[in-house]
Amino acid sequence: MKLRNSIRQGHFDSMDFGPYLLLATLEGAVQAAVLALTALGLSLVFGVMRVVNVAHGEFFMLGAVLAWWISSLLTGTPLFGFLAALIFAPLIVGGLAAVADRLILKRLKYDPEATIVATIGLLYIIQQGALTLYGPDARPVAAPFDFRVSFPWFGYSGYKISVILTCMVMLLGVWALLTRTRIGLIMRATQYDRETAQAFGIPVARVYTGVFAFGAMLAAVAAVLIVPTQQAYYLMGLDPLLLSFIVVIIGGLGSLKGTVLAAVVIGLSDGIITIFFDPTLAKILSTILVAMILVFRPTGLFGTATR
């Protein structure tokens, strides 16, 4: 008991509103950053191909599980294993997605309803594959580096702050790819009008495969980045899937800017509303808030039309 009292005299005092807000904002920013990257992948697939990819969350999960696998194969510093995971996990996931596109989605002619069933099937296949090969346990992946950033009121993971920065760099990269390169032009052309693009000699089938693989890779990258702060688990795909859908629609279909902004709104509101309400009530309120944005602005924040 004496020990306890002496500890309480230490620097950890009550959490005032200001520091709490800072903490909730940081947490919200981490969530927003990762969500933006994941949702961007879904948004591309959705926007260009008109495919509701129910298995998108499973690609996220695969990224995390592969990160565990790759980093556990490599001995040495965690940094080395993590970098290997950051390169190879998305490549493997992208390859799988490309195969799935060629074998299944292409044959369904990207019919919106049939692809829902097919991607639900894919979800089961990937989930069971992970359960059988990886197991039901949650496993950690060591962060490439870690230091505790000591604020006057609480400590915070330095790695988490680096995740925010990395995601921002990646998002800028994707933005440059879509708006400044020929690949981006082709993708946008296909999204805008598939038939015309085909008539102008754009290999639409290959673009579709590429987009599907790229979308999956973005989810995998996001997962590799976040998994050192969480754990790899075979059922972890559902939440990113649902949140990504919300972000994509709120942001407005096909709007990169909107997707990122929506991720920030949702990440931060989830973090900050927590300050004021009982946790579950906070989740209820933030969900209603976001739903109401859509009800009264049905095309999302930046969208022109959702079809």
């Binding site: 959490m15 520091p19 709490y20 903490l23 909730a24 947490e27 919200g28 981490v30 969530q31 609480f154 702060t229 969480q230 972890m236 559902l238 939440d239 973090g271 927590t274 300050i275 946790p279 579950t280 906070a282 989740k283």
Partner: peptide, 13 residues
């Protein structure tokens, strides 16, 4: 803590 929560940090204050 609500179900499906992935991160708990924000509840500790």
């Amino acid at each position: 803590i609500p179900p499906t929560e992935q991160s708990f940090f924000k509840y500790f204050p």
